[in-house]
Nucleic acid binder design. Structure first.
Length: 214
DNA sequence: ATCCCGAGGG
DNA sequence: CCCTCTGGAT
């Protein structure tokens, strides 16, 4: 049985990551709640780097749902054409922006139900907004955290909901906001899907998976 | 279970 | 070439 997820483990992950990359990387670029929501919607099955490349120039002028509606579907589609699944994402963002203007006064809602009712927003995206923006404890289990949790055994689960519970059960509420980002960074840059960098992994001694020869 | 779908890495 | 990327809707 593998080690339980705890704050010390997360600290080890984070401190090791900082040692590798002094400058903050691996974060989805955003300037407010709306651009965060859009960035997360665009990040589905796409890399953080790829999303930021398109959103940085876009959000410089378009950072409200009203401005997005003014840009229009064709304009947005062109702006995010370098991101995978761009046609569906562009339509979702346009419809979502219209709903925010019509039903929420142009603001991003702070309830899970309201967020998940928006097109293109599922449980994972809602959890990111709740956690990062509204500071409401919620664990967004993405491809990185799901893989890492099961491979290392620190937060295992057959499905996303089970991994979510595994994290929440083992972690004090005050650490859950940091935990989300730290786990993402570890999965993105160290515990990668192919050729995990076990040789520089800070929780090497806690992991049953690791190839000890690396 | 399948589709969406370009960019980057190995 | 093949695999993966901070998923969601059908």
């Amino acid at each position: 049985m593998a080690q339980q997820l705890d704050y010390q483990t997360l600290q080890q992950i984070f401190s090791r990551f900082q040692a590798l990359e002094p400058e903050p990387v691996g974060e989805l670029f955003h300037t407010n709640a709306y651009t965060l929501l859009v960035a997360v919607v665009l990040s589905a099955q796409a890399t953080d780097v790829g999303v930021n490349k398109a959103t940085r120039p876009l959000f410089a002028t378009v950072d409200t749902p009203q401005a997005m509606l003014a840009l229009g579907l064709d304009g947005l589609t062109e702006a995010i054409k370098t991101i995978g699944l761009y046609r569906q994402k562009a339509q979702n963002v346009m419809r979502l922006s219209q709903i925010l203007v019509d039903d929420y006064g142009g603001q991003v809602p702070s309830s899970r139900a309201a967020l998940q009712s928006l097109p293109g927003v599922g449980r994972k995206t809602a959890n990111v907004v709740l956690n990062i923006w509204w500071h409401i404890p919620a664990q967004a289990v993405d491809t990185h955290i799901f893989r890492l949790g099961n491979r290392t055994g620190i937060c295992p689960g057959r499905d996303v909901a089970a991994v979510e519970r595994a994290i929440e059960d083992h972690l004090p509420a005050e650490f859950q906001q940091h935990a989300h980002h730290w786990l993402i960074l570890h999965g993105r840059y160290i515990c990668t899907a192919r050729n995990p960098r076990c040789g520089i992994c800070p929780i090497r001694d806690l992991c049953p998976f690791e190839d000890k020869t690396i």
